[in-house]
């Protein structure tokens, strides 16, 4: 791997976000590197969703900085995030069910010919290529998305993210509500994106999935990033310990710290 690829694609520093009295994020630092699958784990309410919403521009942080492409931003907006190459595959996938596969993949960036007509042929051709590259098998790019399975739909949502010239792809619970075989296929797809040089950030509750595909595991707890592991240097028990906080308490106990 090239040296350049070790530079993080996005660098978050001291991100804070509160909702009323609730502190969702309390000074989070996070780097996401290209060519790596970074998993964000944590209990419900740990701040995972808030963090990815800040990265995709849906929420604005109260404090902190986002550095990207050599520039520093106070916050992003959804169009700016897409422009900068950050694409999010939402849990609900945000597909237009009644429209066909190609229209969904090109939603919002349909190619035109003669400045007016949507270039359907080109859309179909490029969609087919993209899906073949991603090894997503569907009957035809002219099939309405509503007729496809959960895994196929996920594949289409991923294809759209890549088609938006995404360099970083965020997955929010990609395997929730999916069968075993389907999950395996989606995980393989996510892993292959990391191998191809995309910066991948994934939220998942399923540690088994996380361990099977990630390079790094970042544990959020009560709005803080409490641990940043290389996946090969840890094990599920240790990660669970950090998610629940039992490890931390043990360590603090050992150190003699009695912080409440």
């Amino acid at each position: 791997m090239l040296q350049v690829e070790k530079d993080p694609f996005i660098r978050l520093r001291n991100i804070k976000k509160t909702f009323g009295h609730v502190v969702a994020l309390d000074g989070v630092d996070l780097d996401v590197c290209p060519g790596e699958v970074t998993a964000l784990v944590g209990d419900n309410g740990a701040g995972k969703s808030t963090l990815i919403k800040i990265i995709s521009g849906v929420l604005y942080p109260d404090e902190g900085e986002i550095s990207l492409n050599g520039k520093t931003y106070r916050h992003l907006t959804p169009p700016v995030a897409i422009e900068l190459g950050i694409s999010t595959v939402y849990q609900d996938l945000a597909l237009v069910d009644c429209r066909d596969v190609a229209s969904n993949i090109f939603l919002g960036r349909e190619p035109l010919k003669a400045r007016f007509f949507v270039d359907k042929k080109r859309m179909n051709r490029e969609s087919e290529e993209l899906l073949r590259k991603l090894k997503v098998s569907i009957p035809s790019v002219t099939t309405p998305v509503e007729f496809l399975s959960g895994g196929q739909r996920q594949g289409i949502a991923v294809a759209r993210s890549i088609n938006q010239q995404g360099k970083m792809i965020i997955f929010d619970e990609p395997t929730a509500a999916m069968g075993v075989g389907e999950s395996a296929r989606v995980l393989k797809l996510i892993r292959s994106l990391g191998d191809e040089g995309f910066a991948v950030l994934i939220i998942s509750h399923n540690l088994h999935h996380v361990f099977s595909i990630s390079d790094r595991i970042c544990v959020l707890r009560n709005g803080r990033l409490v641990k940043d592991f290389r996946t090969e240097n840890t094990n599920p028990d240790q990660v669970v310990g950090f998610i629940t906080g039992s490890n931390q308490r043990t360590e603090e106990f050992r150190k003699g710290s009695t912080k409440a």
Binding site: T88, A94, V96, D97, C98, S103, L107, F116, K120
Partner: peptide, 24 residues
Amino acid sequence: NMSRFGYYTLALGGNEEALRRSGV
């Protein structure tokens, strides 16, 4: 059936939120 406006009209009826998140 053939213009971007037509595509967005149908997408609006299908899933407005998806269209919005695509930056339209």
